[in-house]
Write a protein that binds this DNA or RNA. Sequence first.
DNA 1: TATTAGCACTCATCCAAAAGGAGTGCTAAC
DNA 2: GTTAGCACTCCTTTTGGATGAGTGCTAATA
Lengths: 344, 344
Amino acid sequence: MELDVRKRIILKAIIRNYLETGEPVGSRTISKYTDLNLSSATIRNEMADLEEMGYILQPHTSAGRIPSDKGYRFYVDTMMEEKEREADEMKELLLQRQDKMENLLKQVVKVLAQNTQYATMISAPNTRRNKLKFIQLSKVDAAHILAVIVSEGNVIKNSLLDVQQELSEETVLKLNILLNTHLNGLSIEDINLAMIADMKQQAGIHSDIVGEVIDAVAEAIKADEDLEIYTSGTNNIFRYPELADQQRASELINTFEEKQQLTGLVQETLLEENGTGIQVYIGNETPVQSMKDCSVVTATYELGEGMKGTIGIIGPKRMDYDKVVRTLRNLQNQLDVLYREEDK
Amino acid sequence: MELDVRKRIILKAIIRNYLETGEPVGSRTISKYTDLNLSSATIRNEMADLEEMGYILQPHTSAGRIPSDKGYRFYVDTMMEEKEREADEMKELLLQRQDKMENLLKQVVKVLAQNTQYATMISAPNTRRNKLKFIQLSKVDAAHILAVIVSEGNVIKNSLLDVQQELSEETVLKLNILLNTHLNGLSIEDINLAMIADMKQQAGIHSDIVGEVIDAVAEAIKADEDLEIYTSGTNNIFRYPELADQQRASELINTFEEKQQLTGLVQETLLEENGTGIQVYIGNETPVQSMKDCSVVTATYELGEGMKGTIGIIGPKRMDYDKVVRTLRNLQNQLDVLYREEDK
DNA sequence: TATTAGCACTCATCCAAAAGGAGTGCTAAC
DNA sequence: GTTAGCACTCCTTTTGGATGAGTGCTAATA
């Protein structure tokens, strides 16, 4: 059996209605809701077909129908195609310029959660391919050296190093010059062992410090790559009864608190690049187990070349996909603009 | 009427039992539970008295009794006294040394939440009275200067400053010296306007930068004082039916997400210093509105003189006060030890 | 052949009444 | 002062209609 035009119209009507109400929708409703001028009985026949084909299902024998994951998938796919053509007149999200990356990200998730009424997450941009801009060692006290590492996009990391014996100010200065001349402009992938050996040799008796700094650089650039995830609007899940029962709510909240559970989502999204960078995961499609009763919409954002991060919106399956996708696209643009300004 | 010995025993038995079960406790239970060898009827008489005195209450006419806030208060106060004498044989919480304050705090709340099965929070140590150890300005690129501010306890803050016109390396060096000679060893309260004016004058045409740096220092040391709060174990509230209904859960989770709602708790705790630094807020006693159905146990911790922070444990009123207080005391010690090691 | 009216049937939900049970307060006896 | 006994309260659970939304099927209709 195939999905003819009329079946499509009916399926869409069912889904639209369910997105609004969250209640199973019956044949009579559709009969009135659409302008097909068909009786409820005819609709019932079509619905039986749609159910057989797996697009909708009945919670129990004498209830209306709700969309299945397959149904949502159909809806999202065709909706996306149609909307692609439309102009995007979405109003701006109120983003203020932030000097620190962390604050920017926190602000983004928060604004996004407020705008969509869903739970949101954002991962800090992937800095692996990011280039080192600047290293600064400073003597803090007799036993500690502070390494400040700035990479492109003005991402700043600190690391406090223990030193065995006190270094003179001149030594610190020399090390600074040594490190900067060798490392500036390189990404973490560019730094190889030969280079490190070379630097260590030049550092002479202070070669151990060089080693520590290199480690710190690696650490700073890479380490919490998967931990820097911010979330907001967690308690929005209570707006949707289908997610608000204790079992589910508890699991979801746990996932949002233990942020490393969200890394799966980030990785998945960065891998599966399609044109727009926006992806929709419905129910079991999501890579995070605890979200199998949710839908997840993700977007990759880019701050200059190589600095990619992931934004995610998590809500019930009857999410307003349309609005969410538009909002995310809008956000992508704004972040892009923000970056260019930053750079000017 | 006074609280004679027998009434105390009965009251404690009621509370103990309620802490375990979370159900109203009846006279027959107490009659068996205690070794007073009294019949349920006698217990009933005593319970009637206790209710009249306000220590316990009946959810409805034919139910058992549950402790009132006043009852909990009595229990906590006397329990504390008794336990004060006991040796503390609590097992160590598994804290690993962390180089960054942020990581340490995150670890502490997490371990604490896992150990107690309640929701936990910690505020970063108050840095207001903290002394400036070291300031480092570095030229990042033509338009940006990076200010790194290190204060006692090796708390590091960064701030990226825009500059109108490019500064030479020498100028940056001069400014560094100027700032460090003037400001090192001072706390934020020590920095006055005269001093700032003096520095600005010495900086000549670069006085605006000095102003910006001072602002950054103030900002860095003070600003997110009330924002640096970490939480963990939020979803533990679902373990306790009396907190797990949607209304309450949603509010609590929101409070934990919007961390500035927790500042009230931090301030309150730092003010009301008693001997041990441990405080118990029962029900309405808590300064945070959304926790009026919870009990909150807070502890101040200290990392060296002046660096005080607050730890909080939030759970149902029938919290295991005994264990919580012991755990917190234990943690206070461990943090103290950790700090001394750090400092060595 | 596609559509529709009509009808029997299912099943969640609501409501009231009944049953059960835990626990109390009171009284009278010990 | 303590306790056994009993009537009483009130929550909780169960039960059994009644209601209503919605379906599937069949037979009539265009």
